[in-house]
Design a protein around this nucleic acid. Structure first.
Lengths: 340, 340
DNA sequence: CTGTTAGCGCTTTCAA
DNA sequence: TTGAAAGCGCTAACAG
């Protein structure tokens, strides 16, 4: 019994080679970037390939060449939930550069190890992480020359490549403006303790307030989402009705706070209470809220991220660069702002 | 010169075999689900593997076994932008079942072919498509026994598996309630022509209105997003100030419409104007909007999707099932509703 | 239970 | 420019 091609087996380069009357390696060269092949041969091969519906097998290519064009994208679930622009932009820019996205959404820190195990097994060419990685985990990648670019978080010990929005500067800017508008009593609605950007913003706010001689500012922690922003506002305003400004580390929490302040505490925003957010996400610009916030330059940041990753893949010895983008103040209408 | 293990080469099963003093296939069996191996050997192997940091290479596994555990997820960019729950839930449920997500975000129909080419090359075990696929494209997968589950869209010709929210029924329900509350003049803010769910909802609304003897209802098309909802409202209310109810095929468009109606046309919602949306996405429940809408049971739907896909992967000959989930009415406060 | 053997589909020298 | 041959790292018979 000869080797039957069962009707639905996918065509291999051998099938194409046989059909075109050339060797298998000729077929391979046909689909390679700079493969030397005679125009006539090339045409015959491509014709046969088209007829058979042949497409190079990415697994085999990756296995032999050591290049998979696969990029692992790690992102905290809440980031995509509350700020979907990031993943969307990243995915598109990667696709544009002929790379594929292996997506991992993290609901908690504890999942990271299991996920890195998978990342590792799949021989990805690079990693973009919008989730926190430990130094040990980063070292693991560095050791094996797998480029990693951190998105909106940076490592302390290991010198890894990263693209960040300058949360601290942005938050300081916001607080400075609130101070110069005369606000004296503040409340902070922060993020979870394990959030890098959340903590960065919280600290920046507290430090700036301390510089102005304001200490012991009450802090409530939320999860970046709408509900938790409302809860935070309820608790802060309930405890101290004299609070004049609420500093929220995300737009969705600011929005939740605005709704609760207006509807349950009967405050006019910003006349009776200033509320600021952070991110510049879509809903923050909606007419009902117009949150005073800091917009992250997502497009430039994602562009920088994949550009940097591409470069590192080309030259794995290149040093990891840290790029810091300034956020842009959105005045909005949810806070009374003074001059910088 | 003997075969040096360069410090950063990743360990293979041969390395582990050598270290443990067993054959390579013993190592393989150690990591296989039901591989028969003596406990003692097993332990030696696992120890060696741990020391070398060995992890099976997914590429090689996929190549030889024909199973990659890779699932291609196709999703329209705007779906993730305006309704991120879907991708998040899908990703988690797939991960739970030990499958990996190869993500493709589509900005336009024209990208589909290029993307399917990639899907194909990567030998995925299955496909989840929350983007429109043509019959030809579906047949291609069917021919090669690659299971596809359509999410919120169904094919006409080909009988493919699908999980949908019953948009038509939901929209009819909504319109019926609006009618029974006495509304007579309507406007529709629809989605792009190439959107499956958008068109389904638009048609259902128009048909239900026609049943009630109401014809020639003005339709404006948006892109499911906030801005376009506002634009639609502006145009409809500008043209016909007597409109009593706005039917929007997405929540974010409903939200945009609410803001414009309130702030630019000075309408009280729902007293002066009823506005309904669709999806039951997060922002629709925010206090400032409380959009009257139909909630898609996303969790049950995504669960059904990956369960169905798993089953099809186990048994590729199984017939594709179509599951239709009823949407749940959210009364909200953006529309005056009558009894069903 | 264990080792041997034969590929999976491809890229990449190396000669011709 | 072309083809032959080796081998990426693994699984899956098949003997022993």
């Amino acid at each position: 019994m000869n080797k039957q091609i069962s009707a639905n087996r996918r065509a291999t380069s051998y099938d194409v080679a046989r059909a075109a009357g050339v060797s298998q390696s000729a077929v391979s060269r046909c689909f390679a970037p700079g493969g030397s092949i005679a125009p006539a041969t090339r045409e015959r091969v491509l014709k046969a390939a088209a007829e058979l519906g042949y497409r190079p097998n990415a697994l085999a290519q990756g296995l032999i060449s050591g290049r998979t064009k696969l990029i692992a994208v790690l992102i905290a679930s809440h980031t995509n939930r509350f700020y979907p622009e990031v993943l969307d932009e990243l995915t598109h820019r990667l696709t544009e550069r002929d790379m594929r996205v292996l997506l991992f959404a993290l609901r908690s820190e504890s999942e990271v190890d299991a996920i890195l195990d998978q990342v590792w097994r799949h021989s990805v060419d690079g990693v973009i992480s919008a989730a926190r990685l430990s130094d040990a985990q980063l070292q693991m990648f560095e050791q094996h020359r797998i480029p990693v670019v951190l998105y909106n978080r940076s490592a302390n010990a290991v010198s890894s490549a990263s693209v960040c929005c300058d949360s601290a500067a942005g938050e300081r800017d916001l607080v400075t403006r609130l101070l110069s508008a005369g606000h004296q009593r503040f409340g902070i609605i922060a993020g979870p303790e394990d959030s890098f950007v959340g903590e960065e913003r919280r600290r920046a706010a507290i430090d700036r307030l301390a510089d102005a001689g304001i200490n012991d500012v009450p802090v409530i922690r939320g999860d970046f989402g709408y509900e938790s922003g409302g809860d935070g506002a309820r608790e802060l305003l309930g405890t101290d009705p004299a609070i004049e400004a609420l500093i929220c580390v995300s737009d969705q929490m600011a929005i939740g706070a605005i709704d609760v302040a207006r509807q349950q505490f009967n405050r006019s925003i910003p006349e009776d209470l200033s509320i600021v957010g952070f991110d510049g996400s879509d809903p923050a610009t909606w007419l009902s809220y117009q949150v005073t916030s800091i917009r992250q330059p997502v497009r430039r940041m994602t562009e920088a991220t994949v550009a940097m990753l591409s470069d590192l893949i080309e030259d794995p010895e290149a040093a990891g660069e840290k790029r810091l983008f300034a956020g842009q103040l959105i005045e909005g209408r949810s806070a009374r702002l003074g001059t910088p």
